[in-house]
Amino acid sequence: MAEQVALSRTQVCGILREELFQGDAFHQSDTHIFIIMGASGDLAKKKIYPTIWWLFRDGLLPENTFIVGYARSRLTVADIRKQSEPFFKATPEEKLKLEDFFARNSYVAGQYDDAASYQRLNSHMNALHLGSQANRLFYLALPPTVYEAVTKNIHESCMSQIGWNRIIVEKPFGRDLQSSDRLSNHISSLFREDQIYRIDHYLGKEMVQNLMVLRFANRIFGPIWNRDNIACVILTFKEPFGTEGRGGYFDEFGIIRDVMQNHLLQMLCLVAMEKPASTNSDDVRDEKVKVLKCISEVQANNVVLGQYVGNPDGEGEATKGYLDDPTVPRGSTTATFAAVVLYVENERWDGVPFILRCGKALNERKAEVRLQFHDVAGDIFHQQCKRNELVIRVQPNEAVYTKMMTKKPGMFFNPEESELDLTYGNRYKNVKLPDAYERLILDVFCGSQMHFVRSDELREAWRIFTPLLHQIELEKPKPIPYIYGSRGPTEADELMKRVGFQYEGTYKWVNP
């Protein structure tokens, strides 16, 4: 592979701008107003304001973009700056750019259920340069409990009458099928589907988006991507930290609602779906819905739930269990780990287990898709061969690698495990991989909904998990304890083995 010439960040961002501006969906010269509902909250200060700053800094926003914060707290732009700027990672050389960014910011205080507050917000936006005809993007960085009041008031008082209007809704989209349907029906009564952007930030990850290209742009994968060759698929999300004093919020939802029903299920769809007619948003989402419709409700015998306990040999936070978090209700049975087996009941995947695993306070930070292939028929190497695996590593250190057998150097035919490896950090030294939120917010500006969740996708996802969630809430089974920093409950490994996964433990990928 030829040595790549190092590029400056300015040059890299210039390439990104060229890609972005050559499309006809990006209205570079139009006025846009980006409204952050819930501007005083954690999500706004840690993710949304920093993301908008990065896009502005790199010249990736339309030229005439204004940012308006809205929340109940009586704040000023200076207050917003004070709480969000520490997350910007701005350099001293960017000081003038930073001043320009905050000059485009404003803030309006108001209630979430008060019509007069929204009329005041609308008047404020109209007073901005060309504000009355601007395109408006409303980001709901809010708890779902206020979605209905907020969307109703936005629709009645704050819509642009000339430009387009788009609304970005953060997960969780309800707690179960019934609450999700209620919320979807409410929002759909106010906005068209092409105006609604239900954001799952995992769909903005580079390697998640790469799944489609790997599958449908490489001839070698087509013939082997089926039940005849693939023994099982494992989708993993692991965090090495616990709730760390923020367990009160987590306890309301648990690990299945927080990660599995959305992030992991979306990745499953991209692995299992048929080739779409095109890369058009609805063509892709149509195929994802077909996959979900082929999955039956989760069966309790295919589920393992766990909850982390303190590690007596650990240090600091590792010595504390979930129930030691003062914000967690006493005696909570909320799971911090889950392993679930699903089956896609169609011709391509009949009988292939899709194993979804996620948890907190585990032994490493990792998100990946792992396809394990069947054993080689007619073994001539005296059971020395391990199964081939194709691994798409989402985070950290984005990579695609194939675990395969090669001859060990020497005189004899002794096979050993090795890999074919594409590590993004080595291959793409001159490429700026956008943060997931950067990519998705740019998608909203461009009107691309491919990486957002459609209402029928959402409904099918909740259909699969709601009976299990209701059973857990009714019966309150005690989750299996696992030690902070471990791989999780051993019962999860036993479940995976029972459905056909072979864990060798003899080879570990190392970032080159």
Rank of each mutant, 00 (worst) to 15 (best):
A90D: 06
K205M: 03
I234T: 15
G174R: 01
S40Q: 00
R17W: 08
L98N: 05
L211H: 06
G69A: 13
Q195F: 04
N122H: 13
T10C: 09
G245I: 03
I162F: 13
A44V: 04
V213A: 12
Q178P: 06
G222Y: 06
L235Y: 05
K152L: 09
L7N: 15
Q11W: 12
D79P: 04
C13W: 07
F102E: 05
Y249A: 00
L75A: 11
L20T: 14
L137M: 11
V68I: 07
I154F: 04
H129I: 09
G204N: 00
Q83R: 12
R227D: 04
D58H: 14
W225T: 03
N165Y: 11
V12S: 13
P86T: 11
F221H: 12
Q119K: 15
E206P: 11
I162E: 14
F21N: 07
P172N: 00
D30M: 08
K47F: 10
T31P: 07
R198C: 05
I255N: 03
P86E: 11
F253W: 04
E93C: 10
V169K: 00
Y107C: 09
Q111Y: 09
Q209T: 14
K45E: 05
H186F: 08
T145R: 05
L55E: 06
R175W: 05
P223Q: 08
G59V: 03
L177K: 11
F34V: 11
R227M: 15
I36Q: 00
E252P: 12
C232F: 05
F102M: 05
G247L: 07
L43G: 01
W53M: 01
F173C: 06
I256E: 04
N64H: 10
Q209Y: 04
E193L: 01
G38F: 02
H129F: 13
E239S: 01
L235F: 11
V146P: 06
T243L: 07
S189R: 11
F66C: 12
F66W: 13
L98Q: 12
D200L: 04
D30R: 14
L7P: 09
K46D: 04
G163D: 08
Q119T: 15
Y107A: 07
R198N: 04
W53G: 03
L61S: 01
P62G: 10
I255S: 03
G174E: 10
R219G: 07
D100P: 04
G254W: 10
F216V: 01
N153P: 04
F138K: 03
A90T: 12
F101H: 02
N153A: 09
E244Y: 10
K82C: 10
E85H: 08
I36A: 06
Q119V: 12
P143S: 12
E85K: 05
A116W: 13
S29Y: 12
R198F: 04
G174K: 05
A217K: 01
R136N: 15
T91R: 13
I162P: 06
E156Y: 08
E99N: 09
S132F: 08
G254V: 01
Q119A: 09
I255A: 08
F138G: 01
E19A: 14
E206G: 06
V68L: 12
I199H: 02
Q111F: 10
R175E: 13
D42L: 00
R72W: 04
T51E: 12
N226Y: 05
C158Q: 10
S8F: 04
F88I: 14
A149Y: 15
E156C: 11
N122Q: 14
H129D: 13
F250Q: 00
R246W: 00
F216Q: 02
R57T: 03
I33P: 01
M159G: 09
N122Y: 09
D176A: 03
S8I: 12
Q11T: 14
N210R: 00
Y70H: 10
I52S: 04
Q11F: 14
N135F: 07
D113N: 06
I15A: 08
L7R: 14
D79E: 15
I167F: 14
M159Q: 11
D194G: 08
F138L: 06
V108A: 07
M125H: 03
H129S: 12
G248K: 04
R182Q: 14
F191L: 12
S106V: 09
L60T: 04
N153Q: 06
F26K: 11
Y49N: 03
S123C: 08
L142S: 03
F87M: 14
S180H: 05
K47S: 04
D24S: 08
N229P: 03
W164V: 13
A231Y: 04
L235D: 00
G110H: 04
F66T: 05
A103N: 14
L20C: 04
N229T: 07
I154W: 03
G14M: 14
T76C: 05
F88Y: 07
C232S: 12
S132M: 14
L96P: 14
R166D: 00
N218M: 00
S157Y: 14
E19M: 11
L235K: 02
A217I: 05
H32R: 15
I167V: 13
N226C: 11
F241E: 07
A115G: 15
A115T: 10
G14W: 15
R57P: 03
G174H: 05
E99R: 12
R227N: 11
E99P: 07
S40G: 10
N64Q: 10
A217F: 05
G254M: 03
A103C: 14
R166L: 02
E148T: 07
G247W: 08
K152T: 07
F237T: 12
G242V: 02
Q195K: 06
D114K: 12
L177I: 11
F221C: 04
Y49G: 02
D194H: 14
L190K: 11
F88P: 01
G222I: 05
L128D: 06
F101Y: 05
I199E: 02
S40K: 01
L16D: 13
I224K: 04
V150S: 14
L121M: 15
I255L: 10
A39E: 00
N105G: 04
V68C: 06
I80V: 15
W225S: 02
A109S: 08
V12D: 14
F101E: 00
V108R: 07
R215L: 02
I15S: 05
F87Q: 11
V77R: 07
W54A: 13
T76H: 09
R74C: 13
V233E: 03
N165I: 10
K152A: 12
H186D: 09
L190H: 15
E85Y: 08
G69I: 00
S157T: 04
F221Q: 04
G38D: 00
K46C: 04
